[in-house]
Computed example of a mutant assay.
Amino acid sequence: MLWRGGRGLLLGLAAAAAAAAAAARWLGWWSGRAGLRLFVPEELARYRGGPGDPGLYLALLGRVYDVSSGRRHYEPGAHYSGFAGRDASRAFVTGDYSEAGLVDDVADLSFSEVLTLQNWLSFYEKNYKFVGRVTGRFYGEDGLPTPALSHVEAMISRGTEAGRRALEEKQMFPPCNAEWRSRRGGRLWCSPESGGVSRDWVGVPRKLYKPGAKEPHCVCVRTTGPPSGQAPGLPVYTNRGDLDHPGLGEYTGCPPLASSCSFLP
C-alpha cells in the first residue's frame, strides 16, 4: 500500500479502480446472452445504409451496433462509411481506412491499442443500440467467444493492470519540471503540481532507473515520512520518505535536499 500523503493519490487509484471495473464490465458483455441475433459477415455487409439496405450497422470486436442515429457519419459517402456493414476493429486504432486496413485482425496490437478499443466499446455501448454478434474471428457459429476474443480479454486485463501500476508509480514518483536555455543552461525542479500530480509535498529531483530503459528520467521524490509500500501500523524506522529507493540516483552537483537543480550549458 502506498503512502497516502498526496491528495492526488486517492483520486488516481480511484480512477484505476474504475478502469478495472470498466474492463470487467466489457468482459461481461462478451459472456453468453440468450436471444442475441447472430449475423454472418455476408449478411452484415447488407447493412451499409444505402438505398434498399435493411439498416446501417457496424461491428466492433464482433459486437454489432445499429448506428442509424449517426447516419451522417457512416452512410455511403460519409467519412466513416468504410466501417459500415463489417467488423473493422483494427482501423479504430490504426486509422487506416483502406480496404486492407478495414479488417478485424487485432492480434498484433499493443496493450495500449487494445485499451483504445475498449474505450471505443464504451462509446458505442453508450451511444448506439447493440443488436447482436457477427460470426467469424471473435464469435463462433454458436455465438460464443472464440480464442481470438479470449486473447483480447486477456490483453485488456493485463493492460488495465499495467496502467494501474504505472499510475501508482507516477503518484509515488511524479515527473520533474524541466527547462533548457542555450545560454543559461538547464534546470530541473519540483513543485506541488509537477508532473500533473497534485500533492501535499514538493520533493527533490532524482534520476529514476527503470529496467529496460536506456536512460533514467527525472522524478520528484518525497523526503519525509515512511517509505512508500510500508504496511500501515508498523513502526517508522526511517523518516526519509522514498530517498532510499534502490532505483534512484542523485544528480551530480545538485544539493541532496534541494528542490531545484541548475546545470550550466
Rank of each mutant, 00 (worst) to 15 (best):
P51Q: 04
A34D: 13
P226I: 09
A178Q: 14
L115F: 10
E215S: 13
D200P: 02
D105S: 03
S69P: 05
L115K: 12
V202D: 01
Y57Q: 00
L109C: 00
L208A: 02
P145C: 07
G95E: 03
L60M: 06
G5W: 00
G6K: 06
N127M: 01
N119S: 12
H151N: 09
G143Y: 10
E169H: 03
S194I: 05
A213N: 13
P205G: 01
G32R: 12
P41V: 01
T135K: 10
M172C: 12
S122P: 00
S110Y: 06
A91N: 06
E193G: 12
A84P: 07
G229R: 03
E153I: 00
A59Q: 00
G203Y: 02
E215N: 09
P174H: 05
C220R: 00
E179L: 09
G185Q: 06
G136D: 08
F263T: 05
R90M: 02
A231C: 10
G49K: 04
Q230C: 07
Y65F: 15
A78R: 12
P227V: 10
S157M: 12
R133K: 15
L9E: 03
A20G: 11
P192G: 06
G163H: 13
V152Q: 01
G159F: 14
R184N: 00
V106E: 11
N239I: 04
L2S: 08
A84E: 08
R71M: 11
K170G: 03
R63D: 11
V236H: 11
Y74P: 05
G212K: 07
S98M: 06
I156V: 15
G82H: 06
K210P: 08
A19H: 05
S182R: 10
Y139K: 03
G70T: 11
P227K: 02
P76V: 04
H151P: 01
H79L: 11
L117W: 06
V114F: 09
R187C: 12
Y47T: 00
G62E: 01
L117R: 04
M155C: 13
L243D: 06
A45F: 01
L243M: 14
E43K: 11
N119H: 13
V202H: 02
P147I: 10
G212S: 13
V236L: 06
R137E: 07
A24S: 10
A21L: 10
V204Y: 08
P232V: 14
S112A: 15
G55N: 11
L9G: 01
K170N: 09
V134W: 02
E161Y: 14
S112D: 14
P41Y: 02
A45D: 06
P175C: 15
R7N: 05
S191Y: 07
V64S: 04
R37A: 04
F130T: 05
G12S: 14
R164Y: 15
D96V: 08
G229C: 03
R158Y: 07
G5F: 02
V131Y: 05
C190W: 02
N177D: 15
N239L: 14
V134T: 08
F130D: 13
H79K: 13
V134M: 09
G212N: 12
L109V: 01
G203L: 00
L115A: 14
G82S: 10
G5S: 13
S191D: 11
E168S: 06
A162T: 08
S157Q: 15
T116N: 01
R183S: 05
Y251P: 06
A19C: 02
A213R: 15
V103A: 13
T224G: 12
L188C: 02
G229F: 07
L248P: 07
